[in-house]
Design a protein around this nucleic acid. Structure first.
Length: 171
DNA sequence: CGTCTTTGACCCGCGC
DNA sequence: GCGCGGGTCAAAGACG
């Protein structure tokens, strides 16, 4: 067995909570993949509901994703990935078609120290607007300076998933 | 009309 | 053996 993905890797950077409520269709591309929600549960150790997602980009893709708000800081969203994508990301396809800039944050590395990115809520106008993006960058910068585990996870994810190059270390 | 989210019920594993 | 908690299923409703 590949030990890579047998364990869960967690790291959050999930934009799906941006829109107030995007009901109906369009499972949003959060991190380069398409996710379909198949369940939600309130766990004992966390008052906030945990959402369960599957990769809907490829029906045969075994990857699962759990998204849960941190009990300590509710502005922190923690996403836990399980499994390995047996296909390339949808954003890569988009990249190849020369249209959109991919969101390079599909975390496939297993970091010993789960990192997270905070995302403020409350302003529906900040969904995917430049304002929101700049805020996100700001939050990430903050996380980078505070949490070395996050740095490594990002570096690994970017190098493995997007650049297809050896590990790059941010410093 | 087709696809996706929501939500309650069900199933299974684990600890006591 | 029983109870609890986590994870999954499936029907119903909603939206473009």
């Amino acid at each position: 067995m590949d030990s890579n993905w047998s364990n869960q890797s967690s790291l959050s950077l999930d934009l799906s909570f941006g829109p107030p409520r995007s009901l109906g269709q369009a499972s949003v591309v959060h991190d380069g993949y398409q996710w379909r929600k198949y369940g939600q549960k309130v766990t004992r150790d966390n008052p906030f509901p945990r959402a369960y997602f599957r990769c809907s980009f490829a029906p045969s893709c075994p990857v699962k994703k759990k998204v849960q708000r941190s009990a300590e800081d509710r502005s922190v969203l923690v996403a836990t990935y399980e499994g390995e994508h047996n296909h390339k990301s949808s954003s890569e396809d988009e990249l190849h078609s020369g249209e959109l800039i991919p969101c390079p944050f599909s975390i496939s590395s297993s970091s010993s120290a789960p990192a997270s990115v905070t995302q403020q809520e409350g302003d529906p106008e900040m969904n995917y607007s430049p304002k929101f993006q700049s805020l996100l960058v700001e939050q990430m910068t903050s996380s980078l300076s505070k949490d070395p585990g996050f740095t490594n996870a990002i570096a690994t994810a970017v190098s493995e998933r997007i650049l297809q190059h050896p590990k790059v270390v941010f410093k």
